[in-house]
Nucleic acid binder design. Structure first.
Lengths: 145, 145
DNA sequence: ATATAAATGATAATTATTATCAATTATAAT
DNA sequence: ATTATAATTGATAATAATTATCATTTATAT
């Protein structure tokens, strides 16, 4: 698991300073099970840091993404969403179209396809985005009622 | 190939009126090889329809997407992008991170994975988004120079 | 304890998207 | 060909997300 401390260590190693604001953000990110929009993160962090600016959230997210610690998702189209990456594990998501619950896909088996495509198209492929959409158990029940 | 006429016929069948503005948009969409943002589409359509409003672009895009004639991509993060769908073909994209060129992936072989995941997670999965990122032949050359 | 560069937050600016509404127009019915 | 009707358009404004600017504060290495 990625804890607040590990994230902080990671940032420090990269030369970033650990401010109380950042600590609060890291804690919220580490503790979140679902995906987070900048606005949602803002709300949560405000409990610990009432005077934090939304800008700081955006900035920290940018850093975390650049370091590969969180990844962007496309669950909601009005705003970006982010999710904590388990250390270096390559993985994807299944997103409930109704409630937003996220389940993990730990392996995707796309490496071979990716290699084949690189040959076919001449592209140098260095990554992919894979997301499944559907309805979680709970929302399936609601639909059928 | 999807031509302007076919798209128009499709819209008409669904009860939408074919206005000169829409005709111009359909033509631009059908003629575009790469992906289009609403703003880019706006520019192109203005040659034929100088007084068209950006809003009309947005509205028409919404209709086309609802009918499944175009699909949303995530090439650029600042704005949405769309690409014409070849009729009912399930396919994905490889996007060049440098110039935005798009290559098609005509089959993905994810159906079996999707079924397996549905079992594992209890989700009712009804679709997925798959995009590859990398560098096209041209931009690879530029990078190495 | 202090110097320094990085980080913060207030504010404003930018950009994308959506809502409202009166005027216009494609279409079907005559 | 005319006309009635509902859909469409575009001007305008509103909303929402994101980024830029800059003076002030602060974490960190020394």
């Amino acid at each position: 698991m990625m804890t607040e401390k590990r994230l902080a260590t990671f940032l420090r190693r990269e030369g970033y300073k650990i401010t109380p604001q950042r600590r609060a953000i890291l804690k919220a990110v580490a503790g979140a099970h679902d995906h987070l929009t900048p606005a949602a993160l803002y709300e949560r962090v405000q409990q610990a840091q009432p005077h934090i600016g939304l800008v700081t959230i955006y900035r920290t997210i940018q850093i975390l993404e650049a370091l590969g610690l969180i990844c962007e998702m496309h669950a909601e189209r009005t705003s970006r969403s982010y999710l904590l990456k388990r250390a270096s594990e390559h993985h994807h998501h299944i997103i409930c179209s109704s409630c937003g619950t996220v389940a993990d896909v730990t392996h995707c088996g796309l490496d071979s396809l990716q290699q084949q495509l690189a040959k076919e198209t001449g592209f140098e492929i260095d990554g992919h985005l894979l997301e499944f959409f559907g309805y979680c158990r709970h929302c399936q029940r609601l639909k059928s009622e």
